[in-house]
Computed example of a mutant assay.
Amino acid sequence: MNQYASDIAFTPSVKAIQSSKGSRSVYAKVEQGYGWQTEVTTELEAFLAGMDMFYLGTANQAGQPYIQYRGGSPGFLKVVDKNTLGFADFGGNQQYITLGNLAENPKAFLFLMDYVNSRRIKIWGTARVEEANPDLINQLHDPEYPARAERAILFSIEAWDMNCPQHIHRRLPQNEILPVIHSLQEENRLLKEKMARFEKGVEPGH
């Protein structure tokens, strides 16, 4: 039984290395202070509402890890209850590595990146696949998203933490960048037309 929620990641070997590298005292204070969260908070729920992608980590029975990208409408990773998150799973390349891993090892990990605001949340827990629960799949699926939901995946939270923004390169979403690009392209087109008229000796507006 873990003494602290962060013990799910800070194993004895990790703590030993933290001690040798000089960071153990810092994390010991965190453990004894606010610590890591074990339930959905308003902060986490608000963070999820803006997410249109995340990374899902699983491992097979032998411990071989696998990371898979998941994308959907903003907020498609939904809060089911205070200990559970869920999302509709869409068809892909039919390798089924994640499903195979979860069939023999329920341990899973969510890595959530907010590239715009340089924030990240890490969530440890377990996951299970729900393929014979159409009500749940419909509950989690956004009907306006152009993909068919094949199943639902539920993630049980054991611990989560929002950590520092260090070394996160900012990336802006397409829906924010494209209007700017189109505006610049139009401005460039108008300037080229103006220059062409100027070179021909035609006054602007004539």
Rank of each mutant, 00 (worst) to 15 (best):
M1W: 09
Y4F: 15
A5M: 04
A5S: 06
A9T: 11
P12S: 06
Q18A: 11
S19P: 02
S19L: 14
S19G: 15
S19H: 14
G22L: 10
R24E: 13
R24N: 09
R24L: 15
Y27S: 09
Y27C: 02
K29Q: 15
E31F: 05
E31S: 06
G33Q: 09
W36V: 01
E39H: 13
V40M: 10
V40D: 03
E43N: 04
L44M: 05
A49C: 01
D52S: 15
F54V: 07
F54T: 07
Y55T: 06
T58D: 00
N60C: 03
N60S: 03
Q61G: 02
Y66L: 01
Q68K: 09
Y69T: 07
G71E: 08
G71Y: 12
P74K: 14
L77C: 11
K78V: 08
V80M: 14
L85P: 13
G86H: 05
F87V: 08
D89Y: 11
Y96F: 15
I97Y: 05
T98V: 14
L99C: 10
L99Y: 14
L102F: 09
A103E: 09
N105W: 03
P106V: 05
K107Y: 10
F109A: 05
F111D: 03
L112F: 08
D114H: 03
Y115T: 01
R119C: 01
I121L: 05
W124T: 10
P134H: 12
D135R: 14
L136F: 06
L136T: 06
N138V: 05
Q139F: 08
H141K: 13
Y145N: 00
R151Q: 07
I153Q: 04
L154T: 10
S156R: 14
S156V: 08
I157K: 08
I157P: 04
E158M: 07
W160I: 07
C164Q: 07
C164R: 08
P165Y: 08
P165F: 05
H167F: 15
H169D: 03
R170A: 12
R170E: 06
R171C: 01
N175H: 11
N175G: 04
I177S: 04
I177F: 00
L178H: 00
I181C: 01
I181S: 01
H182L: 01
S183G: 05
S183F: 00
N188C: 00
L190C: 02
K194F: 01
K194V: 03
A196Q: 05
A196H: 03
R197A: 10
K200S: 07
V202I: 15
G205I: 11
H206E: 13
H206Q: 13
